[in-house]
Computed example of a mutant assay.
Amino acid sequence: MFRAYEDGNLLTQHFSVVHSQDAKRAFHYLMGWASTLPDYECLPGRHGHIRDFRFMRGSDWDFAFIPNKAWLLFYFRAPSLRPPKFAKAEVLARFPAAKETSSGEITIRIESLDDAVELARFIDR
């Protein structure tokens, strides 16, 4: 579900960063999917100058994505990688193009609606 946030234009600003039609479709899909997640509060945010969309489970910030011109950079953040369901090996095996960051998080480029659907199915399983 969506959490209320102070800046009502923030989500629109995030979307305006995306130029690729395929990435825009992925953005729309992830917004709809996020609104149905009962265990998560989802909201747009900023981390310094970086725009992000956050998936919060209680005080844990499990997932996020950063909009870019041609893709969304999705993060499996540290709290989400603790349960076996999202063990690093599992995520990396399912998404071979995924990369591990220096802080131990995993990033995946979401470039299309198909990418977004595949990611959501993996998380929902």
Score class of each variant (00 low, 15 high):
P67R: 10
I50M: 12
F74H: 01
E90Y: 00
R25I: 10
P79L: 04
S35Y: 02
W61P: 00
A89P: 00
A87K: 07
A34W: 05
M56D: 10
R46H: 09
R46C: 13
K24D: 00
K88W: 01
K85C: 03
M31P: 05
G58R: 04
K24A: 08
H49Q: 15
A23S: 09
R77F: 11
L37T: 07
P44Y: 02
H47N: 15
Y75R: 01
W33R: 13
R77Y: 10
F65P: 04
M56V: 13
R77V: 08
T36N: 14
F55A: 09
A70F: 06
Y29A: 11
H47Q: 14
M56H: 11
G58E: 04
R25S: 14
P83R: 08
C42F: 00
A70E: 14
K24H: 08
D39P: 03
F65S: 11
L37E: 07
S35D: 13
W71H: 15
F27Y: 13
D60L: 07
F55I: 11
Y75C: 05
F27P: 02
A70R: 11
M56Y: 09
L37D: 07
A64V: 04
R51L: 15
A34R: 01
A34K: 04
L43F: 12
G32T: 12
N68H: 15
H47D: 14
F27H: 03
P67E: 10
C42D: 02
A23T: 04
D60Y: 05
A23N: 04
K85W: 03
